[in-house]
Design a protein around this nucleic acid. Sequence first.
DNA 1: GCGACAG
DNA 2: ATCTTGTCGC
Length: 216
Amino acid sequence: MSIDAATDLQKRLAARVVRTDEFGTVRRVTGVDVAYSTVDDRVTCAAVTLDADTLTVTEIATATGVADFPYIPGLFSFRELPIVLEAFDRLSVRPDLVVCDGQGVAHPRRFGLASHLGVVRDIPTIGCAKTCLTGDFVMPADERGAYAPLIDADEIVGSALRTQPRVKPVFVSTGHRIALATAREWTLRLTPRFRLPETTRAADHAVRVAMKALTG
DNA sequence: GCGACAG
DNA sequence: ATCTTGTCGC
């Protein structure tokens, strides 16, 4: 896939993103994360499902492959989505919500990894990134739950959300089938103790374990 | 042209 | 993303 073709595809698929709540009771929430090998060109993804009430792990699925698309800011999903889909599709139970380690519509063409995954699998997704890709924001107050709008081209595309006091905010945005305010609520619900959502932490941990099993 | 730039 | 030990704190 060429840069131009990927960009064109994003523009077309971005029109399918739904930014309002379109889901019922959330019983299971899945986190996905990808890790890169240092010894070869393989990438591994872990999709870890948690019980939404207890935040305990109920299922782990992993997949390993080769990343053929380069890392280009703005075209990130073309690099990670293939392996993410492989791991996600191995889950025996379809989750009600997915949290991605990356942006949703807080993206130059409003189509980050979370939106891409949400649209191609038609599932509610949240983008929760550790750093900002595009847009401007003022630093939210230093208290859990404080947030500031992330604005790009005069449009609110996400929120800089403080999940814990004295830590940097995370960048939350609609992935697919969820409103921004609801995405913030779920992010807070998933961060009772740490900066990042338990889903992301569980996926990060699982992918490291899987990666180490391949390497040593 | 210059600076910015998810993981 | 990854290269990377110890160390501070609950």
